[in-house]
Design a protein around this nucleic acid. Structure first.
Lengths: 345, 345
DNA sequence: GGAAACTTGTTGAGCGCTCACACAACCTGT
DNA sequence: ACAGGTTGTGTGAGCGCTCAACAAGTTTCC
């Protein structure tokens, strides 16, 4: 009965409107609106009657009409890149969850290549969805300038590859994380740590590299060799094969867990035992890391917290605050089987 | 200049409307609308003038107003569960990409628990976004009935855990994939294959289990032991530890790659060599699988194809076709180092 | 007992767009 | 020369909602 009315009606299968509900409940459309918006200015039995009518008709408020007049969509847009990678996908999910908790819908749009126009297209799609604020989680070096240069009419929060103290930016301290990892290895007596890095044009890769460099510098040590990767296990494997040839090498800090898996594999094939001959540390703490052989020592990031801070910044900016800032979240070390004392001599 | 106008104006910072563009171009709002909708009924120089005005004002069409009258959002909704897992996340991305290619926006909403109300909430959120069709990629056993029982006013396409011949459903033939994997092992001379399965309430887990069973039955063989897992590497590890104790066991089909990693690890710890003592096959073809030790033999699914078929079904239903159907996509075997001939005697 | 409150309701305008239609200008063909 | 296209443009209604303004009905207080 209820459903049928909305669907058939007089052959027009128009879905019921507020007027229909009002008619059925014997009130005006405005009263229905008040019930829907939880206004206190409605008598209890009127409210009950209206709610009954709503249920009977299977009425659902037309969001477009509401948006048209209120101009508030309750939606936050998110631009993301490389959603197939662990970090970015975790961030996307975290922001979505944090948004929901704060009462916002989060619409995610992924960009494939990081040209200015691709970014512009993604932003356009989100603006068409009337998002009230934007969270941009793109760690590419150029993304910062590109985004800041867009001069959008809504608040924009950066959520990846940000620097300490930056306004309208939430992030996890990558430099600190990399120092944690490198210090862990140096503390174990290794004299130099090699580094398998991420792509040079990713801010986060650059920051992890910087942390690795700083850790050596702070102790007056010279960093070990650096090999570039592309986040994939395959690139880690390639790097690992080359590093395996250096018999002096006893410690490697790899910029993410996938590449670390490749390194482990290459070392294994080269009969270099981990951790006895070589210690390896990854970054990310993927769920599988504990079951690599040996279990991977790594750096864990608090993505949910990052999501919450990003959304909080957006909400604060929406509330009129001028360019609010947040502190970077701190990663933590997770020591497992792939690291041990230096035994090279 | 252009941007400033839209932002400041006369203190109201209202964004420019069609009327503003029309006034500036010296035409009626309807002509602007025609230009925007690529109507051929506009003289070339008028069109140019209007476009110039649009650019100058930084005008952007209000999607809500348009939606309000057209009642067509150009948006497809997608309900997804367990987006942290490889398969589901690949499907989500594939549907999104296929949707974009077909000219639709895809809005994804994840559900955490698979209660009827959680599903209802997710669907409600999507309906509020005025989606024209729904793609439901939830492999839970009950999801089918739940979704079919919702009686929604828009087409609903199932995209996971579907059966051959089912209408409004796209999928990858899980039974066939599991038979492929099991047959591969039986062909190598193993007399029985053990199975580490996914959760019993996941349709796909059940289907992979069924394929494994069928492969044995077709040869008149008795299947090996079955141990339940939960898709995680940890559960695979537990199962692997138990399976390692059975010295007669020479082949294991694991329902996904993550669990297979855990199995490999457990076998390794128990000094059971892979593939010499035991062969292992996974399912999914995660990018890291080639770098496990040994490289994991697995079954690969064509997710982009699945996405395309799901969207195609939705579009066909939207075009008036009554409950269109599509064939299941076929997975393919990927033989790597973790499987070899039976050498138990 | 009546003005001043509060409570509950109604009415009407208008958000920015598209659609159906009216109309004007300009071509044909007879 | 005039009916009958074709082409380009304008007019007005209305999608479903919220917001402002206002009209009753009900209570309160001196």
């Amino acid at each position: 009965m209820a459903v049928e009315r909305g669907q058939r009606d007089n052959g027009k299968r128009r879905s019921p409107s507020m007027a229909d509900v009002a008619a059925l409940a014997g009130v005006s459309h405005q009263t229905v609106s008040r019930v829907l918006n939880d206004s206190p200015l409605v008598r209890e039995d009127t409210r009950t009657r209206v709610n009954a009518a709503i249920r009977e008709l299977g009425y659902r408020r037309n969001a477009a009409a509401r948006l048209l007049v209120t101009n508030r969509s309750g939606r936050i847009g998110m631009v993301s890149a490389h959603l197939a990678l662990y970090g970015p996908s975790m961030i996307a999910e975290a922001v979505q969850e944090a948004g929901r908790e704060a009462g916002y819908d989060v619409a995610v749009v992924g960009v494939l290549d990081l040209t200015e126009e691709a970014l512009q297209r993604a932003v356009d799609r989100l603006l068409d969805q009337a998002v009230e604020a934007l969270v941009v989680a793109v760690a590419h070096r150029d993304a910062h300038h590109l985004v800041r240069g867009l001069s959008l009419p809504i608040p924009v929060v950066l959520a990846q590859g940000v620097s300490p103290g930056e306004a309208m930016a939430a992030g996890i301290d990558q430099v600190a994380g990399a120092r944690l990892a490198t210090d862990h290895l140096l503390d174990l007596g290794h004299h130099a740590v090699a580094h398998v890095s991420g792509p040079r044009d990713w801010t986060e890769a650059e920051q992890r590299r910087e942390g690795w460099r700083q850790a050596h510098e702070a102790r007056g040590l010279l960093p070990g060799p650096e090999l570039p990767g592309d986040w994939s296990a395959a690139s880690g494997y390639d790097a690992g094969q080359r590093l395996a040839k250096d018999r002096d090498l006893s410690a490697i800090f790899v910029a993410n867990d996938s590449m670390a898996l490749g390194v482990l594999r290459a070392l294994h094939e080269a009969a270099r035992a981990v951790p006895n001959d070589v210690s390896v540390v990854g970054f990310d703490n993927v769920p599988e890391g504990g079951y690599y052989w040996p279990a991977l020592t790594t750096v864990a990031q608090d993505f949910p917290e990052l999501g919450r801070r990003a959304v909080e910044l957006a909400v604060r900016a929406l509330g009129g605050e001028d360019r609010p800032a947040a502190e970077l979240a701190q990663p933590v070390m997770l020591v497992r089987g792939s690291t041990g004392k230096n035994r090279t001599r």
